[in-house]
Simulated scan of single mutants.
Amino acid sequence: MIHESSANIHGDARGCGGRLRDARTAAGLSVQEVATRLRMPVHVVQALEEGRWQVIGASVFVRGQLRSYARLLGVDVEPFLDAEIAPTAPVELVSHSHAPRYQRLMENMGRRAVYVVITAAIVVPVWLATRSHFSDVAPTTASLDAVPPEAAMPAQGSPLPPPAAPSAPPAADAGPYVASLAPPVNRSPAAGKLVLDFGGESWMQVVAPDGTTVEQGLMRAGDNRTFDLGAGLRVVLGNATAVRVQQAGSIVDTAPYQRANVARFTVSSDGSVTPAE
Rank of each mutant, 00 (worst) to 15 (best):
A99R: 15
R104F: 07
L128S: 08
A23F: 01
G217V: 05
G11E: 01
S167I: 12
V42E: 15
D228E: 12
A190E: 14
A260M: 10
A47L: 08
R234D: 15
L144K: 00
A168T: 11
R39V: 01
H10L: 13
G192E: 13
W53L: 06
S143W: 02
G157R: 00
L81S: 06
A121M: 09
A7N: 11
Q65V: 04
P170R: 13
S272M: 12
R111Y: 14
G217I: 04
N239V: 00
V55T: 13
N8V: 07
T119Y: 04
R104I: 12
D136C: 00
E33C: 06
V45I: 08
S132T: 05
I56T: 09
G238S: 04
F61E: 15
G192T: 05
E150T: 15
R131N: 10
Q247S: 08
D12A: 06
V77P: 10
L233Q: 03
S188H: 09
P189V: 06
T25K: 13
N261F: 07
G18H: 05
P154M: 02
P154E: 05
E92K: 14
E50H: 07
V206F: 06
R21D: 00
V243S: 11
P90A: 12
G232R: 12
A129P: 04
S95H: 10
G271F: 06
T119L: 14
R111K: 15
G199F: 14
V34P: 05
V60T: 03
Q103C: 00
R112W: 06
A83M: 02
A113R: 11
L194W: 09
P169T: 01
R14I: 00
V185W: 04
Q54T: 01
S250D: 05
G51D: 07
R225H: 15
H43L: 05
L29T: 09
A155L: 06
M1L: 08
P209N: 08
R131Y: 04
V267E: 03
V31H: 01
F227K: 07
D22F: 10
V243D: 00
F61I: 09
A168G: 03
G175W: 00
V252A: 02
R101K: 12
A89S: 13
T212D: 11
T226Q: 12
E215K: 10
A276L: 08
L66K: 10
A248L: 10
P149S: 10
A26E: 09
M109T: 11
V114L: 09
L229N: 11
L20E: 00
L20Y: 01
G74Q: 13
N261H: 09
Y177C: 01
T36M: 09
I9N: 14
T226D: 08
R131S: 14
T119Q: 10
L237S: 05
P90I: 00
E33L: 09
H10W: 12
E150N: 14
I9Q: 09
A182V: 01
P87K: 05
L181F: 10
T140E: 01
V62P: 08
R14Q: 11
A191G: 14
V267C: 02
N261W: 08
R112C: 12
P161F: 01
G28T: 04
A47R: 09
L38H: 11
G157K: 03
L66A: 13
G17E: 03
P139T: 07
T254H: 01
G74H: 08
G211N: 11
Y115I: 05
I56H: 04
A190S: 14
Q247Y: 03
N108F: 15
M40K: 06
R67Y: 03
V207T: 13
